[in-house]
Design a protein around this nucleic acid. Sequence first.
DNA 1: ACTATAGTTAACCATACGGTTAAGTATTGA
DNA 2: TCAATACTTAACCGTATGGTTAACTATAGT
Lengths: 109, 109
Amino acid sequence: MVNYSQRHLDLAFGALAHPIRRGILARLSKGEATVAELARPFKVSAPAISKHMHILEQAGLLSRTKHGREHRCRLEQKRMKEAEAWIERYRTFWNDRLDALERYLKENP
Amino acid sequence: MVNYSQRHLDLAFGALAHPIRRGILARLSKGEATVAELARPFKVSAPAISKHMHILEQAGLLSRTKHGREHRCRLEQKRMKEAEAWIERYRTFWNDRLDALERYLKENP
DNA sequence: ACTATAGTTAACCATACGGTTAAGTATTGA
DNA sequence: TCAATACTTAACCGTATGGTTAACTATAGT
């Protein structure tokens, strides 16, 4: 193993571990937005939002382009897909195990 | 909204944000194990593992039962499923948007 | 009874997170 | 030119992570 993607997964899952950052991603799933637009629903300071943006960017979940004085932000899917793939991979194991248990309980009541 | 599950998601994603904890979960997907068994692959101290176990337990991803002097650990699926559901929910949006872009590019070459 | 094993708790340290206010850099528009 | 807007950086604070060693509890095996 000795996985590359370990670092990516650390950052991606870490980035997802905060409601403001998940809120930002959810908003972006509906289309591009500026930092100010993304900040609007949350009652924290601009620097706080700026830090969240940085964490999301570091995690590769988001990218942006400067247009004049505003930063237009959009989602990047790759890392999110990797994160989901990690969970998905083991979910199938769990379901298999649950299915096996169910079968066992059905056949051995 | 004002989501309950926000806290759960914070903890679950936070717990997934470390390679040792993901390793522990991966190992557990193959069946129950004791803390010592889970610790074996990693070259950190026992207290370090103990802390990781605590974080996984707090996140509701894992539970355990004492059998004599050893703790038998197993996965708990619920929180993991919630985490996956969160990602999945927005992934479909992203795929929709990608599909739309593809269609557009096909129809407007 | 003693010793080894399984695991935790306590105390400590360094670094990251999550927030703040204050100040700084660009850009826009009057 | 000047003031407002969009956003970041700097400096600071409290708390959480992630690790260590040392000491503790409890069970198992001899």
